[in-house]
Design a protein around this nucleic acid. Structure first.
Lengths: 232, 232
DNA sequence: GCCGAGAAGTGATTAGATCACTTGATATGT
DNA sequence: ACATATCAAGTGATCTAATCACTTCTCGGC
């Protein structure tokens, strides 16, 4: 029954470090304060600080050079993708994220249509059934089921790299971001469009699947743009 | 003059942990040994071990739950993208990676052609000039310059999310992976095709830029496939 | 002017203890 | 018998403070 797990000290540290870099006007290549100074400033001990630093290092936000110092990494000014412990991205980036999906997902739908046998189609149908059961239930659950449809479709395409990319993009729709999305999206319509996409994939009509996915995501974007201007 | 920096203890630890998970037949959701046991098994102290764990956590390879345990994450069986300290991916995945680029990069070339003013085109030209100077020089340098062209083009497209995605995909072409690529690619031809792509972008011919980028990447893939079968 | 030794600064690792949280078993009450 | 409350064991999180290893820059010798 437990919730999202209370953030740990080093969770907070990671975010404070990011903030320090961003608001401090640091550019990639700049050197950051030493571990000793940082641990003092944040009032934590060395090992704790270092855990936070390692996380940032793993995503390319910083670089640690033995004997030399800690440097701002190239990824700092970009979006850090698969990062369960550092939610980034704000509302403005939501539309950019959708544009990215509009580029990537339609071809994936086409690929899925081309190679998917009946057996592999099963999980996709299952996801839609699940979503269907939530049509009159909790909005959050329908929303999640809709997201799962996109992941499942990407998986069907059969390219693990692209699958991972889509998965990353959708994961960013997590935590706070997810709440924003939930305010804007039109879950019922999404569901219906998903049904149509599945039909095209099942019929192995690649061109149609691609076009439907494209217009579906364009619809989502339109709705969000509209509602951003005139909240419900 | 220093080289690639000697791997640190926790670097090695990160890889040993990954190996433990992979060869141990662990599936996502499985619980791993406790920190106490792991630190004993690897003969390192807790803080050191935890640094390695945090890196794995940051990429979604594992999940640490306070009071409960350490669990294998969902990302473990997929590709972990922007990860300077964990080179993954083997040769088989090279072709999949290229397929992914074939899906993503052509539309980006089109977007670049549509929105690029003359000023923004400067860095792209500069990259090509740089590559041109290496035409008769070191293969490695030409190879790098060619890679930079792809990054720069993706940047021009003006979507930071997609830019980051492409950057991640190309980054994976790092360390060991890069050596593999260098064996297979045809740097001179790549350069010439890049020149043609730039011309299309400069002429703001989106359709042509897209098609050229697509055929360029298809060429690269063909060459690699061919050479994999019959090494030089 | 060049270059090598050394000092200062910085990250990497160690050691063991203590705190905080989760989970399942046990006991208790109805 | 079942549900609920309590508690103990296991596990991650953090602290403490010192030492080791590496880089960089300065300064002296040639």
């Amino acid at each position: 029954m437990s919730e999202v797990a209370r953030p740990t000290l080093s969770d907070a540290l990671t975010e404070r470090m990011l903030e320090l870099i961003r608001t401090g006007g640091h550019r990639p290549g700049d050197r950051l304060p030493s571990t000793r100074e940082l641990s003092q400033r944040f009032a934590v001990t060395t090992p704790t600080l270092r855990e936070a630093l390692r996380r940032l290092e793993a995503t390319g936000a910083i670089e640690m050079r033995h004997g030399s110092g800690i440097y701002v990494g190239a990824a700092i000014e970009r979006l850090v993708l698969p990062n369960p412990n550092m939610r980034e991205i704000h509302a403005v980036q939501l539309l950019e994220l959708l544009d990215a999906r509009i580029v990537i997902e339609p071809p994936l739908a086409a690929m899925a249509a081309e190679r998917a046998g009946q057996e592999e189609l099963a999980p996709l149908k299952q996801v839609l059934d699940e979503a269907g059961r939530h049509l009159r239930g909790e909005d959050a659950e329908l929303h999640d089921a809709n997201m799962t449809f996109h992941r499942a479709t990407a998986r069907l395409a059969g390219n693990s790299v692209l699958h991972e990319v889509v998965d990353s993009l959708l994961t960013v729709h997590g935590p706070e971001q997810r709440e924003i999305l939930q305010i804007f999206d039109d879950r019922r319509r999404d569901y219906e469009e998903h049904v149509a996409i599945l039909a095209a994939i099942e019929a192995r009509d690649a061109a149609r699947a691609e076009e439907l996915m494209r217009s579906h995501l364009a619809d989502v974007k339109t709705v969000i743009e509209h509602r951003m201007r005139s909240p419900r």
